[in-house]
Computed example of a mutant assay.
Amino acid sequence: MNTTISENQSLVLIVDDEPFIRAQLRLSLQREGYRTVEAENGREALTLFQQLQPDIVLLDAIMPDLDGFDCCTQLQSLENGPSTPVLMITGLEDQESVDRAFEVGAVDYVTKPIHWPVLRQRVKRLIQQSHLQQKLEAANKELQRLVTIDDLTQVANRRRFEEYCAQEWQRMARNQLPLSLILCDVDFFKAYNDTYGHRAGDRCLQLVAKAIQQTVNRPGDVVARYGGEEFAVILPTTYADGAIHIAARICEAVRQLTIPHHTSQANTCVTVSAGVATEIPVPSSDFQEIIDAADRALYQAKTKGRDRYQQYVKQLSSPVYILNSQHRVV
């Protein structure tokens, strides 16, 4: 292995079992300002690719043990493999070999003996195209993030909530697993705004959103601003007892913020009410069912005094669990 390192230059991985060809490629590319790293076989190339994440791979088609075609196939399964251009270098010009090179993931090829001006231009073009594609993908990802994030609170917005809730509802229906939903509402928020002003109200919502987000730890759980002073927490593969536990923690986390709210009729600080619903979805059913259930539970929590959570139950005779402002479960 031979490496030449300099800052802010594209890295080219040269893979060829012939030392003379590798040396020619290295010198030609270094004259153009590229960094280079060399592998003498396909297996070494795979290791170096994972370690160094090159900008392009120049890959000899015919090598012992693991040839260029099989190496290219395996490169596609590695991190960043599909987005890294592979330029196949081959002494084979038959249609079958050319077709196979593209089938295994190469984006272009040159034949031996190498025409050096052609090689340099293709390397330059492929690297430019790859970098442009990476910039476009990053921009699209950021745009997608922006259209699904609530500007004020930086949690998911209503659009993202509905998309994700529908997605997880259908996934839970296919697998017959539970989906839980918590709807939270900041208690007496209009009175808070009237007393402290809208700027303080915005700051309050930001702090509440952060407290809820920090309470929900699993990657698959999503916290969203449902609207106004309402937040929603989607909990896939979560049974009722787990959702109740999280709802209790959310109520406590917001209470522990100790944001003064002297016009609240529930507490002297900002609190939330929460409605909890859990369903194992029926195939072809509508996710609106669990939203309606959580909303009804939230309404019950409010009518019972706020600063508490309430589990939705389908039968009025079923037990209801409530956390009141004295921190008791009754």
Rank of each mutant, 00 (worst) to 15 (best):
D202E: 15
N8R: 05
E168I: 14
I290K: 02
G227N: 12
Q53M: 13
Y226A: 10
D194H: 05
A139Q: 14
S180Y: 03
N80S: 14
G197A: 02
Q310C: 13
C72Y: 00
H131N: 08
G33K: 06
T153Q: 09
I127E: 04
S284K: 09
G68P: 03
T238S: 10
C204T: 06
Q144M: 12
Q326V: 13
A191Q: 11
Q214R: 13
V37P: 01
P64L: 06
Q128S: 05
G220N: 09
I259K: 08
D55W: 00
R199W: 11
L323S: 00
Q170P: 00
V155F: 09
R22W: 00
R158D: 04
Q76P: 00
S10M: 04
G305T: 08
A101G: 03
F161P: 02
P219Y: 09
T268Q: 15
Q50V: 13
R171Y: 08
Q53P: 07
T303Q: 15
K190H: 05
V12Y: 02
D17I: 04
E18A: 15
D17H: 08
D286M: 02
V118L: 09
K304G: 13
Y239W: 04
R199D: 15
L179R: 01
Q76A: 08
P82N: 01
D60L: 08
M1Q: 10
A106S: 13
L66T: 01
E229K: 12
A156S: 12
L152R: 11
T4N: 10
L132H: 14
L66G: 04
T238L: 08
G197D: 05
L126N: 12
R145W: 11
